[in-house]
Design a protein around this nucleic acid. Sequence first.
DNA 1: CGATGACTTGACTGCTGTCAACGTGCGTGG
DNA 2: CCACGCACGTTGACAGCAGTCAAGTCATCG
Lengths: 255, 255
Amino acid sequence: MPSRNTETVVSLSKQMKVACGECSLNEICLPVGIDKDELHRLDAIIDRKRPVARGEHLFHIGDRFQAIYAVRSGSLKTYATTEDGHEQVTGFHLPGELVGLDAIAEDCHPVAAKALETTSVCEIPFSDLESLSGDLPGLRHQMMRIMSREIRDDEQNMVILGQKSADERLAAFLISLSNRYRRRGFSPYQYNLTMSRSDIGNYLGLALETISRLFTRFQNEGLIQVDRKHIEILDRERLCAVSGARCANWQSVHN
Amino acid sequence: MPSRNTETVVSLSKQMKVACGECSLNEICLPVGIDKDELHRLDAIIDRKRPVARGEHLFHIGDRFQAIYAVRSGSLKTYATTEDGHEQVTGFHLPGELVGLDAIAEDCHPVAAKALETTSVCEIPFSDLESLSGDLPGLRHQMMRIMSREIRDDEQNMVILGQKSADERLAAFLISLSNRYRRRGFSPYQYNLTMSRSDIGNYLGLALETISRLFTRFQNEGLIQVDRKHIEILDRERLCAVSGARCANWQSVHN
DNA sequence: CGATGACTTGACTGCTGTCAACGTGCGTGG
DNA sequence: CCACGCACGTTGACAGCAGTCAAGTCATCG
């Protein structure tokens, strides 16, 4: 059945080559604020790569910086390593988010990016992006906004790592994920964790055993329902209260 | 003596109005990578304000975002507050560094900036900066680099807060300051802390008592000499080793 | 000279890390 | 289909680092 094969290829290709204008993420991704009739210029420089399998790297620490990446589907973690080989997770990245922005300054990647599940990304060559941003004020502004938000979120993380207790950290993390999923049209009340307990603990500056214990305790307290990777938030109000943050109003980290 | 008065005013005014081309910081500040003959265009939008006294704010949390600021002399701290009123110091800022970059995304300041000593800054209205960066590719690139470096440094801070012990944190902090002073032409072996023990502890996620104890211990171990605000680094090698970072080669955080 | 704020030092407590054993689900291969 | 191995996750016991509380010292300034 040659026609069927061809169709499959076309369909895959179509799926992979969704232009920004048709992408469901264009309300939260790079194209925000760019005129419809100029969007094709951004499209033209973007390379839609084949999906990255779970466990594979998008780039490694020290890799030459050439492009930033927008997550299209799936999820990634970025992590740095200390000289004694330890790993520090610096972030988890959901569809619509950009990775690699920390590499611009030194022209090489200070962190690695690893797929937590099958993940597809848009590759945006930085030199092209930079020259294009000379022509498109909207693109310039959006780049600034995205980088600024990243700085703000990192400051927020400093607050969490600097003075929150273990409970507060995990609660804040769960609420933050909830908000980010909601922003993408998914339920804010239940989602699947794509990262391991160990990754969460590492990210939050806690031992993985602590994460495990807290999941159990939060469940006993009726805050959440945990089943392996699946999280259901039963009492969002109270979970917010535990996190010690002003997030009851749906506005929060990573909104 | 009217003439003397006038002279004083002129001299102060001259001091305050140093153009970027004559500023000793132009190798590390915003003008990096901008053509000499285009620098006047940047100069034109910059407002050199009167100095901010110790303890005064440059901006408060929630203030409308209108400009970013470059520190010309003195130093600042930026801090966020949690809803229970606690303060989290998010950074210390030395001459040549930009503050306010985290406010672009939401159009309001998520942190406050307070002078640690008498401090003068250059105010750079953001809308002007943004439109000017449409004309000057060099300015665009430098803005990206500066924001990228801020993101990278914040990631580095996550590593410190996430998995370093108290000793390692303080050692890394002292080395980082040393590197930053060196970059500005000051001695990397001795400098004055412009912030309190409490600020340092808060920034590093430690109690101020812990900072105090560590200063004493580092001194007993012959790593540093402390006299009130004055720090002398006696054994840089070993201090680096304590920090657990690859910083013996003078390259490091905040280079 | 006293008041004030910043810093130091000590005693004690407790949160969270570490170590260790055990349980559970999933994929692989027989 | 089942057995096995392995990675991941859970739970318990214990210990240590750093926080908290409290008292005391020191410098600076009015």
